[in-house]
């Protein structure tokens, strides 16, 4: 494998690792907190919200937005590290 290819595959590996972590959070807030564990979380009340219901109709959406911006930052840094930014 050439130097160029090695660099490319190292970059790709780090990228895929970020994806796994971010998608795990994505899954946890929506399918986890908002659907599978909703009933348990509904026992907890924050203000007028039952927590499971809040995650399903509000919280998961806030987390989604944050996740994409975290991804943008991580990838911009990664691009710089490997000299792929432009």
């Amino acid at each position: 494998m050439s130097e160029k290819q090695k660099k490319a595959s190292a970059y790709w590996k780090e990228n895929v690792r970020y994806l796994f972590i971010l998608l795990a959070i994505w899954f946890a807030v929506s399918y986890g907190a908002g659907i599978l564990f909703k009933d348990t979380l509904n026992e907890i009340k924050v203000g007028g919200f039952e927590l499971g219901f809040w995650f399903a109709q509000q919280g998961s959406i806030y987390v989604f937005v944050i996740l994409i911006f975290v991804y943008v930052r991580l990838m911009n840094t990664l691009d710089k590290k490997y000299g792929y930014d432009e």
């Binding site: 971010l22 998608l23 994505w26 929506s30 908002g34 399903a56 109709q57 998961s60 959406i61 989604f64 996740l67 994409i68």
Partner: peptide, 10 residues
């Protein structure tokens, strides 16, 4: 709909 139509953007 709320989760489905926003989570897709992730």
């Amino acid at each position: 709909y709320l989760m489905g139509w926003t989570g897709g953007y992730v």
